[in-house]
Design a protein around this nucleic acid. Structure first.
Length: 481
RNA sequence: GGCCUGAUGGCGGAGUGGUUACGCAGCGGACUGCAAAUCCGUGCACCCGAGUUCGAUUCUCGGUCAGGCCUCCA
């Protein structure tokens, strides 16, 4: 059983072979913490969480190192801090906590490392120093710039040869740049902004260098997998790659087979965008939906399902209907689990190859979800027929669900939704009374009680083992259940 | 202007050189005191043109449309 991943550099799917199966490394570009992140920002969080879980399943929990950075030095952070009249740490701590809270609600495991730029400053300065020493960077007017001419393969990842980019460049070129494509490694801080010491004068790092330094510090180069949104391919990842290689830590400049390229990351993975009405969701377009707000209206698992409903490289349209369908699918699965609650899943939880297969094929979550639903239907049938296979089916279902980060809640709790303990016991009493009326064939009373439950927004589902209930779906126009 | 993706039924969404998964919605049936839930069955699609091929939705080329990147945007 082997994993295949689509590598942006090779522009094709390649079998995944870690440099060291006892130490598999993955790095994903994380948030700039100056505000709440929108739901599109969480697509890579959820997608790479599935890959993280899958890798842990394949190589062992302790064998996978997953680092996701936190950019806590940035113009927007400075602006927010001065607006509120507080230190930047107040801002970054606040929004990092919110981000991690939202990620957790979406069922994402915490990465094994979450380095912050402010805590990586020594490594950043050291790496810039090596770039200058290697003549791959130069200081000019208080800035240090990466010399793109020093790296012959610049543009290879994104498929943009340097000369073409100059032709299409629309940006005004700063006078201190030797070449228009050169990018900032270090720059002076403006008055009042946070500042760090460096051999080139006080200032702060550019964005790209932070990721390379963190990777080197947290994971060591080269890494197995580097992930992020498709928009980061250029310039961010192109620049990371260039500076990372020229800083000379890739000892022996290992050549990747078939890539003809010294290694920085052996596999580059990029997720497609989440779109709002056919357009990219972005703050500048003003069409954002904050994960923080969505999580107040829907269980995180519903949002997670909707985020994984399309293959990670495909664009994903974000609509109310997608959320409703996600809710529907999960209700179905939890319904099956509720009916199978007396079945002991037992066993080792080992996954058979054919169950993991969709995920092994470039993390094909829609195909895996289809399998999840199929297993659930089989389990439901087996439970109804008292088939002894039910235990094995439940085990298979739960094992696949765990790798995908689904179905970890108790079915009863899932359907209770927003009901508190008080309401829950009241509903349970009504259900019991109605069951009694039904046994007595007092249909009028049974229907009266059902009407009462409906008024409480509770749906009743009769079954052989007695009635179960759930809080009804929020209506489509977004009302709270 | 340059570069890069994508185009599958009413909607969502996989996949394939030769009967096009599946979900939702629709329709029919089973079950049910009635409903709901569940189960079974069923109708509906591969952007256009050319090429390669015995055969193309799948491969190649061209076109159209849509989206993205070229601005420290997941």
């Amino acid at each position: 059983m082997s994993l295949t991943l689509y590598d942006t550099m090779a522009r094709t799917k390649r079998p995944f072979v870690p440099a060291d199966p006892r130490r598999v490394t993955m790095y994903v570009c994380g948030p700039t913490v100056y505000n709440y992140s929108h739901i599109g920002n969480f697509r890579p969080v959820v997608v790479f969480d599935v890959l993280f879980r899958l890798l842990r399943r394949l190589y062992g929990e302790g064998a996978v190192l997953y680092a996701a950075n936190v950019t806590d030095v940035d113009d927007k952070i400075n602006a927010k801090a001065s607006e509120e009249g507080v230190p930047i740490k107040t801002i970054t701590d606040r929004y990092l906590a919110a981000y991690n809270g939202d990620a957790e609600a979406l069922g994402a495991l915490l990465p094994t490392a979450q380095p912050r730029a402010t805590e990586t400053m020594d490594a950043i300065v050291a790496m810039i120093g090596r770039l200058v020493h290697n003549a791959a960077a130069y200081a000019a007017e208080g800035h240090v710039l990466f010399d793109t001419q020093a790296y012959g393969d610049y543009g290879k990842l994104s498929g943009r040869p340097l000369d073409e980019m100059i032709a299409g460049a629309r940006v005004e070129v700063a006078p201190y740049k030797r070449h228009p494509a050169d990018f900032v490694l270090w720059k002076p801080s403006k008055p009042g902004e946070p500042v760090w010491e460096s051999p080139w004068g006080p200032g702060r790092p550019g964005w790209h260098i932070e990721c390379s330094a963190m990777i080197e510090q947290e994971l060591g180069l080269p890494i197995d997998i580097h992930g992020g949104g498709i928009d980061l391919v250029f310039p961010h990842h192109e620049n990371e790659l260039a500076q990372g290689l020229c800083a000379g830590h890739a000892d022996g400049a290992r050549q990747d087979e078939g890539q003809g390229h010294a290694a920085y990351a052996h596999y580059w993975l990029h997720n497609g965008f989440l779109n709002m009405a056919d357009e990219k969701m972005s703050k500048s377009l003003g069409n954002v939906a904050l994960a923080h707000d969505l999580l107040k209206q829907q269980p995180g698992e519903v949002i997670r399902w909707a985020l994984l409903a399309a293959h990670y490289r495909q664009p994903l349209a974000w609509t109310d209907d997608a959320l409703a369908q996600a809710r529907n699918a999960l209700d179905h699965l939890y319904g099956v689990l509720g009916r199978a609650r007396h079945i002991d899943a037992g066993g080792s939880g080992a996954l058979l190859e054919d169950q993991l297969e969709p995920l092994l094929d470039d993390v094909n979550t829609p195909a895996a979800m289809y399998l999840l639903k199929k297993l659930a239907t089989e389990l439901d049938t087996a439970v109804r027929k008292a088939d002894p296979n039910a235990s094995a089916l439940k085990q298979d279902l739960m094992a696949l669900a765990e790798v995908m980060g689904f179905l970890q809640a108790d079915p009863r709790v899932w359907f209770q939704g927003s009901a508190d303990a008080d309401l829950t016991s009241r509903i349970d009493a009504l259900i019991a009374a109605r069951d009694a009326a039904r046994v007595a064939k007092d249909w009028a009373e049974a229907d009266r009680i059902r009407a009462e439950l409906t008024a409480l927004n509770v749906e009743v589902m009769d079954g052989p083992a007695g009635a179960t209930w759930r809080i009804a779906l929020a209506s489509k126009n977004g009302e709270q259940a």
